[in-house]
Design a binder for these strands. Sequence first.
DNA 1: CTATGATAAACGAACGTTCGTTCATAAATG
DNA 2: CATTTATGAACGAACGTTCGTTTATCATAG
Lengths: 205, 205
Amino acid sequence: METALTKGEKSSQVILQAAFNLFVEQGYHGTSMRQIAQRADIALGGIYNHFSSKEDIFTEVFLNFHPVHELIVELEDVERESVAEAVRLTGHAIQQKLVGQGDFIKLIFVEIVEFRAKHFPVLFKSLFPKAIAIAQGVFSARGKLRPYELPVMVFGFFGIMFGYFFVRAISRESDFLDGGLPDLDKLIDIFLYGILDEKPEGGTS
Amino acid sequence: METALTKGEKSSQVILQAAFNLFVEQGYHGTSMRQIAQRADIALGGIYNHFSSKEDIFTEVFLNFHPVHELIVELEDVERESVAEAVRLTGHAIQQKLVGQGDFIKLIFVEIVEFRAKHFPVLFKSLFPKAIAIAQGVFSARGKLRPYELPVMVFGFFGIMFGYFFVRAISRESDFLDGGLPDLDKLIDIFLYGILDEKPEGGTS
DNA sequence: CTATGATAAACGAACGTTCGTTCATAAATG
DNA sequence: CATTTATGAACGAACGTTCGTTTATCATAG
């Protein structure tokens, strides 16, 4: 047994994973402690040995138990040969990390609707400095840019990515698009044409 | 009294409005029938004279009681002198209708998370033909376009708008941005640079 | 290597409360 | 007066949490 976790720590992780899955499947108020207990294979009362309340579990899940922290670390190492390549690699890293790891965006929906985004400032403040540094790195890579302020470009890129995730989240649940998801690379290309002063090299179309 | 509504119809509308507000404030499972009754100023049991269940209320709210239907009608009349102007006017109309009328986007979050988007195909199918017609009209207005497929451009625009609403929804609840919302016109400009073969006239920067 | 005992963890019945819904009855409507 | 609408008490089920108890864990003592 090479696990460095005590039994209690192991149980906490199992509970958080079960809660994460249930929260994105049915929301916070739509998930009961009994469901969490059942999916974590732990007795109902046992949960309270590790967490003081249901909301305590959500707070822990929202602040720590998701892939955004790993994502930030990965993005710090992204190649920055040119703006176009930096943006493309960043987009793909986000897609792989957030889409690959299930419906992370839905956890944010839960936070906004069921908690009025009250935990968000805490998460945001812990990510903000690193995110700004990454953005500056990406958009100051070699390449002539139109004179947009950094936040405008960040939100533009952000919008393209979240629009993509949003459509994915809906169409995964009920595929009203006949599987016709938009091509992320083409969306990124539109963004690149939008911010670059000249045609970006290596486009998809 | 010039209202053409019977007492029952009037009550139905009051109930739907109360439910709409509560659902976007606290989600579906976070809202109780007693809260709806109280805010609509109707006795608890009286609700069931108009709706057969709590979910029936949500379905009605989600499919009919929101501003998207009016929005579609407005968009059909948008000026289409050039692609740039058509896109800008469309963006502003969406902003005014959806942001002005409160947090409509949060109703979609509730639908995705708490109902797994199960009502979405119904809404989508009722809007799809008109939406396609509008999109074709907007993007075939006078102006040379890069050779993107229509769905790619629609989703790109959609993403820009969605990202804007998303940031608004978060920062309205807990203003972690110090009120520094992105400028929608600049975001639309990025999109226009992205799809147009030449500089769009009348930009903001 | 085993025995011990304090602590940590797991258990599931039970508590008080709130939930969505129903019901008998009364009031308002037209 | 027949029908629609409003009322709020009542129902059983489900909720989050607590409780007394049992079981597991693991450093230390023998």
